[in-house]
Design a protein around this nucleic acid. Sequence first.
DNA 1: ATGAAAGCGCTAACAA
DNA 2: TTGTTAGCGCTTTCAT
Lengths: 361, 361
Amino acid sequence: MSTGGIMDIEATGRTVTLKDVAQEAGVATMTVSKALRNQPGVKTSTRNRILAAANKLGYRGNISASALKSGKTGIIRVIVNEFDVPFYSKFLEIITTEISEKGYIPFVQKTHYSPITLQESLDNNFLADSMSDGDIIHASGSDFDQIREMSRRRPTMLVDSCTPQLVTSSVNCPNEEGMRASVQHLIDQGCTRIGLLSRLPFMTPTELMNSHIGVAPPRMRGARAAFLENGMEFTADNVIPIDGLGEEQAIEAAHRLANEGLRFDGIACMNDSSAIGLIRGLADRGISVPKDVKVMGFDGVRMGEFTVPSLSTIAVDMEQMAKLLVGQLIEQIEHPNEQITPSRTTVGFNLRKRGSTAIAS
Amino acid sequence: MSTGGIMDIEATGRTVTLKDVAQEAGVATMTVSKALRNQPGVKTSTRNRILAAANKLGYRGNISASALKSGKTGIIRVIVNEFDVPFYSKFLEIITTEISEKGYIPFVQKTHYSPITLQESLDNNFLADSMSDGDIIHASGSDFDQIREMSRRRPTMLVDSCTPQLVTSSVNCPNEEGMRASVQHLIDQGCTRIGLLSRLPFMTPTELMNSHIGVAPPRMRGARAAFLENGMEFTADNVIPIDGLGEEQAIEAAHRLANEGLRFDGIACMNDSSAIGLIRGLADRGISVPKDVKVMGFDGVRMGEFTVPSLSTIAVDMEQMAKLLVGQLIEQIEHPNEQITPSRTTVGFNLRKRGSTAIAS
DNA sequence: ATGAAAGCGCTAACAA
DNA sequence: TTGTTAGCGCTTTCAT
């Protein structure tokens, strides 16, 4: 005998459709459709009857059919390069929460940096992007022609896009201001020989003006500004080259620094991952942070609170970033006919003063 | 004048369909469908003509329509509780790579632990699960009735399911064996007063047999086994209670331990996050790892290599885990009629001996 | 407030 | 090898 509720559902395999629910409730499929989507124009008693029937039959709906007809999936897709990178994982956590709160369903994909893979996820898997109503993309190494082309076709928001032309709206980290604050903090903590751990080699102001490879140029500009404002020179000697922004490359750089005889008393890193790697690599050689050298990160990842020493950093306001990205994307989704002018917004940051830049007591 | 290729595409807004491509290539839609899916039965010359036409028109396909008709999306969904937790982010990185390599499209969602949210993602957002051909779920705090019910309906694989009845196939971490190896390693490193940092309070063997709340019981069993095998007692005194497996709770526990006067020379943690938090919290009170106390993690997250000291841990073989999960799921997807017997597989691990359990030289 | 008809874009099955 | 037909489950539109 039926007790009602979910446990009654038979594992028949046959899909329960709107029609089945309609039949069970004794109404037309259209009424069921409206009732289940909380649309007006259904009597409360009818709605309740329908809900009961849907529940009894274990109705699940079919987003494909819905999307096919209505052209909307209610899904916002977020694309990042990798999952196991502290910045991305924090970004994903915050932005998917924001998407849910705005009533959309977040789906996450990754590209793993390769433009080929991005191409695949957009071309070979050519069906996949009809799944979402819009995309939020943080994919540094990507083929921007492709992103540009895609963003023309459908609602798209970018993170940290630094191309000179403004083709797609983006929300950016406070690359220049943040880096300036980072170097300023090292100076405030008494550092006089400051290094910049950077994938971008030293560039003159003019060269920097014309360089648009990701976030490195504005960050170097910000660092340079802080040097100059404090009457310090900024030369190639202040740049510590690394091959990438991962922990491993920073460890290598640390070993190199130690081999050459550490010539800095403060190092500003381009992100928290490289700062954490740097501290690890310095520890390998018995160099202590913050005693021997102070280290600044950039991003504000979760793990920075838990390392020993904890990591001083420029904590990007990711909640604000998420709100802007999602808000502007939904604007595009829900007003598809309005011609939007691409915009670029920079979010705020907080200087987190922690152990890695503490002055020994 | 048209130069061919992607830049020709007009941003007309009108969707390009198979029919458009067929018209352009002068063939039937069905032929286009076959050609684009690399199905046999299309002459190479025809295929090339179709490909050219599709490219010229900027055809993107519509997964909803395809899914509606064929019943397959080619998508495998992965559900975790959170993104910004080192274990989950590593798991996601590895499993999404494996899914891609097997020719499916990975999509990731999160539940944020709340059964209500899981309910939402399965009920309120009731359409979303018709998007994927199958699901891989690592959602500790979830309503298992619901998962069970869902897994009856569609291909599903679980991670670390520890329920007594076997309703859905799962792949598990080496909870018991790993923890045993963890404690054994502490003993091998000379520890004689060993604590277990655990959310589960101390339990007798009998109680442990009947406890099935997640992975804690098998892990405590494993720890207990190591104690006994080395002629050591395992009592309530060996359990250090924590409120959760996050870094923050471990920091609290460390402070408590320090306040009470540290009575351990080795501590085995249930995961790397709590181990990292513990080390951080001990450092707050001037207690040094590994000098004053050695610490073992569990999981093998990326960050454990970069902390100071680096973290000794039980590195779960996540590649193997991913292969098993994806392989078995695809088996279910591609052979929907075969009655599968639910299975539970335990993957291997590697003991990573690192700084946090090093013997001072 | 409710219902009937049409069709979104695709592909399985079958026909030529 | 290529083409025709039918219809997946839903929602828009237009009746009633």
